[in-house]
């Protein structure tokens, strides 16, 4: 990370592996990861629902783990690897979770959906939730005001074996 000061204050250069691509980025210290994605890079798939870690709409995968991108500063993640909803699957095909969300109608307005899907991807990687009640609990950091929870549960249940199979194969 390098720094320089200007009239607008300190700016820092960080390097991020963003959806598989190495990027050098100029950020101000107070730029959250979420604002970097949405306002600076135009990656608006990651949503701002509350900006305070209380809804989960901004969930992304940082070094493979799910986090709230609204409550961390971009400058703190020099050298990290970041996956957002835009980078979850290759261009042509849907990620198994994305396909399962469509199949089970696991959303209505769609605004919490990228966060739900990234969160579910994190859940799959953690491998700590298998039963329905466990999945419910481990998905409770993602609010859905439309109330599509039962369908979200069904979609994740449906996709989990595929995801765990993929991991087993790797």
């Amino acid at each position: 990370m390098s720094e320089n000061s200007s009239a607008a204050g300190q700016t820092c250069t960080i390097s991020l592996e963003l959806n598989g691509e190495r990027r050098e980025l100029q950020v101000q210290p107070w730029t959250t990861l979420l604002d970097l994605l949405r306002d600076q890079l135009g990656l608006t798939g990651t949503k701002k629902g509350c900006d305070h870690g209380q809804c989960g709409a901004c969930t992304v995968l940082l070094d493979g783990r799910r986090i709230n991108s609204c409550l961390t500063l971009a400058v703190m993640h020099d050298g990290a690897s970041l996956t957002t909803i835009e980078g979850l699957a290759s261009e042509a095909t849907l990620h198994p979770l994305q396909a399962a969300f469509v199949k089970h109608d696991a959303f209505q307005c769609g605004y919490c959906t990228p966060g739900q899907i990234c969160s579910a991807a994190g859940l799959a990687a953690e491998n700590r939730a298998s039963s329905r009640d466990e999945i419910r609990e481990h998905m409770s950091g993602n609010l859905c005001r439309c109330g599509a929870y039962p369908n979200i549960l069904a979609a994740i249940e449906d996709a989990l074996p595929t995801l765990r199979g993929q991991e087993g194969a790797q």
Binding site: G53, G56, T59, R65, R66, I67, N68, L71, T72, S119, G122, L123, E126, H138, S140, G141, N142
Partner: peptide, 9 residues
Amino acid sequence: GASPQLRNM
């Protein structure tokens, strides 16, 4: 406490 995302952070 909190949520899985927050506990990761």
